[in-house]
Write a protein that binds this DNA or RNA. Structure first.
Length: 758
DNA sequence: ATAGGGTTAGAA
DNA sequence: TTCTAACCCTAT
């Protein structure tokens, strides 16, 4: 509303009075309001307004000084309108009425003038109607063309009778609403006032809350629905909602820590906790989520991998910092370090997850560096949670059937992978089905191995591996650091993980094409079967009952173990939970809302040959294989028959970050990771594991198989040996079946829309 | 639908 | 003048 604005005095706040304010009032005729504003301006010479004097002379018809004050405060400060005010009530005594100074004659803009003009006409129009119906409101509305005549003058006597108007038909300046009443401002002002950018309207907390609630209720992306179902004023557009959400959504915020949300960390942490609760039910999450050194304790987090898939919401990067649960499926403890992380702290004694809010330069950057600290397990946890969405009960069942019936897919066991891990590091910009395959097989399954080898081989090997791996490890050479217990750690920066962001994509292809050459020197004692490298991923032979050496938890891992055990105990239940339940439920959506966007992250490329996996995977960050592998001296033989027991944290790493881009792989990789993990000591439900395995199997091999069979992806040429190994074979039938199964699930809505679209 | 970048308005 | 938030536009 153009006539608005008790406006700014020097150093005072300024507020625009919009038509919405008037609409909200419902109690007062707009003319009354305008008159009141004018009167307030006239009486606002001192610090304190003498409301009684104002009322005495008021033309508004308002007889209660208190009411008058209340109206003003509503208009100026959005104070509540108190319904129960008697005529004799005294105004409040405080002197806060003029925190906003009055500008009786604010300078008008073209837009304002046109709006005001429209408003005036609307008022006149209504006035005419009311006149015809006996409700005469005598509004003398000038065109507001001059500085001194902006305020509607309302003859006092009429207003005295009519200042209370019930069901005020709100005159609007919004062209949409106005169009049926009076010519739109567009017509009134052909000079482009209507073209002018809308005045920025700050988002109130209420709006943000509404938005969050809307997202929870209707899901991210349904901005139209949210817009209409939630009480957004008509000045908001779906686009604005989307943009706002992009800014405000938990985990997606680009806000620097210095601003409003000072403690993003705690927010994310709590969000994570909630998400985790949703995933695994009430449990001593706190122990698992502890920050600080304890958090970095080596931990067989793989044990709970299969237990968490029911988290429907995407676990966004925010989960990672909170879930710093290291993993040590192998003998090398690896910790992903953010470049922001100060010092080269021994990962095992890592500082509390430090959220990086500092770099807020670009959204891109944010996407690439959602959080500053990844620990393998946190990553895994995130990926698990994300990947979990792949598996509804039915999906799992279908996939299980498919996988079991034909033994269609066999993920190469750790032993077979040996040095190909390099390929998994080199996904950078690589795209195409081959990438999927590669990622899944090499990074998910083998990645850890590769890293392990690197670490175990010591600095020289690390350096070499770094080279072999391309640029992924460049920023932070995989220097072996020995922990007090002898565990070795590999520090990997985010740049390592996301070479694409590090702008070193060239190396990708080359490496991908020559995976074998990558890390011959990387030592992988347990699995160093060169032939294995050439084995088909789907080849049953690859299913080597390798014995994994998993470090025994040392005492300080107790909490982690506790966590694992708990999760393990929850395994079956979680795996059979019906994902559908959570689809729109509060809790699930809450997780979504709190933890972050789930729509984007999930892209199930494999489902359909039409979907070009390249898009999702091609842009995907390279798989930071091996990040997770860790190990301790004591070893426990672990048979990782099922689905090849990928040490999949690797892919999980990516799941943490721009999930949107690579989730297809990550989720897939992830699941197997979980399955493999259950160390003997953890009583894990075989069923749940199998199911998960099935899914993993499907995803892993299914993607490439599918894409290769049906889509000559543009990057198909880049197919690396591993991927080619995944050529559809008789066995792949099962894979396809699994794909179909998932597809159907997706169609049923069990998978996020984004996934279904794929 | 969304990301990313540019533009604009308002506040400090 | 600078910074920030909101808006707008365009490409994907």
């Amino acid at each position: 509303m153009a006539a608005a604005a008790p406006a700014a005095g020097k150093g005072k706040r300024k507020r625009h009075l919009s038509e919405d304010d008037v609409c909200l009032l419902q109690r007062y005729n707009p003319g009354t309001i305008l008159t009141a504003l004018q009167e307030v301006a006239q009486h606002a010479e001192g610090r304190i307004i003498d409301w009684r004097a104002v009322v005495a002379k008021s033309a508004t018809g308002i007889t209660s000084a208190r009411e008058y004050q209340m109206l003003w405060r509503y208009l100026a400060y959005h104070h509540d309108l108190n319904e129960s005010i008697e005529a004799g009530d005294l105004p409040l005594g405080d002197d806060s009425d003029l925190e906003l100074e009055l500008e009786p004659n604010p300078s008008e803009t073209k837009e304002a003038l046109s709006e005001a003009s429209a408003l005036a006409k609307a008022l006149i129009s209504r006035s005419s109607r009311e006149q015809a119906s006996g409700h005469r409101i005598n509004l003398d509305v000038p065109a507001l063309n001059t500085q001194n005549e902006k305020i509607v003058r309302v003859p006092s006597k009429q207003l005295a009778q009519s200042h209370r108007v019930t069901n005020v038909t709100c005159p609007v300046s919004n062209p949409k609403q106005l169009s049926h009443i009076v010519p739109s401002p567009t017509h009134l002002d052909p000079n482009g006032a209507s073209k002018k950018r809308k005045k920025a309207k700050a988002w109130s907390k209420e709006e943000d809350a509404d938005l969050a609630a809307g997202v929870q209720k209707y899901g991210e992306g349904n901005w139209e629905v949210i817009l209409h179902k939630c009480n957004f004023d008509n000045t908001r557009t779906p686009d604005q909602l989307s943009q706002r959400w992009a800014l405000k959504r938990p985990g997606g915020s680009t806000k620097p820590a210095s601003t409003k949300h000072a403690s993003v960390g705690s927010e994310e942490r709590s969000a994570t906790i909630k998400a985790l609760h949703l995933a695994v039910g009430p449990m001593p999450v706190s122990s698992a989520l502890r920050s600080g050194r304890e958090q970095s304790i080596q931990h067989k987090s793989t044990a709970f991998a299969p237990k968490m898939p029911q988290v429907r919401s995407a676990v966004t990067p925010s989960l990672a910092p909170a879930l710093a649960l290291p993993v040590q499926p192998l003998r090398v403890a690896a910790e992903v370090q953010s470049p922001l992380r100060h010092g080269q702290q021994a990962p095992g004694q890592g500082a509390p997850p430090k959220l990086s809010n500092a770099s807020n330069n670009t959204r891109k950057k944010q996407a690439a560096l959602p959080n500053s600290t990844f620990s393998p397990s946190s990553i895994q946890a995130a990926a698990i949670a994300a990947g979990g969405r792949l598996a509804t009960a039915s999906t799992a069942a279908n996939l299980l059937k498919a996988a079991q019936s034909k033994n269609a897919v066999h993920i190469r066991s750790l032993g077979a992978t040996s040095l190909k891990s390099s390929a998994s590091f080199d996904h950078g910009t690589q795209s195409g089905g081959s990438q999927h395959l590669e990622s899944l097989n090499a990074s998910a399954v083998n990645g850890v191995s590769g890293v392990s080898a690197v670490n175990q081989s010591g600095p020289p090997a690390g350096a070499e591996t770094k080279k072999a791996l391309g640029t992924t490890l460049a920023p932070v050479p995989c220097d072996s650091e020995e922990n007090e217990d002898g565990s070795e750690f590999c520090a990997i920066t985010l740049d390592d993980l996301f070479p694409e962001d590090a702008k070193q994509p060239e190396t990708v292809d080359t490496k991908a094409k020559q995976p074998e050459t990558t890390g011959p020197k990387a030592k992988q004692p347990e699995n160093a079967d060169p032939k294995a490298m050439h084995q088909e991923t789907m080849d049953p032979k690859s299913k080597q009952p390798d014995t994994l050496k998993v470090g025994i938890l040392d005492p300080k891992d107790k909490d982690m173990l506790e966590f694992d055990q708990y999760v393990a105990s929850q395994g079956a239940h979680l795996n059979t939970d019906d994902l559908n339940k959570s689809k729109c439920t509060n809790s699930a959506s809450q997780a979504q809302g709190l933890v972050g966007s789930q729509k984007n992250p999930l892209k199930l490329t494999p489902v359909d040959g039409k979907a070009n996996p390249v898009t999702a995977a091609g842009r995907g960050k390279p798989v930071a294989a091996g990040v997770a592998s860790t190990g301790k001296k004591a070893t426990i033989p672990i048979s990782h028959l099922a689905a090849g027991t990928p040490r999949g944290i690797v892919d999980t790493v990516n799941a943490n970050a721009p999930i949107r881009r690579t989730l297809t792989r990550r989720a897939a990789a992830l699941v197997p990771a979980g399955c493999q993990a259950p160390p003997p000591k953890h009583a894990i439900d075989a069923k749940g594991c199998q199911m998960t395995n099935s899914i993993a199997t499907f995803v892993s091999s299914g993607v490439p198989a599918s894409s290769q069979a049906s889509t000559p992806a543009k990057d198909a040429n880049k197919a690396s040996p591993p991927s080619s190994s995944c050529q559809p074979k008789p066995d792949s039938v099962a894979v396809n079946g699994a794909i179909r199964a998932v597809k159907s699930v997706a169609k049923k809505g069990n998978l996020p829309a984004a996934a279904a679209r794929q």
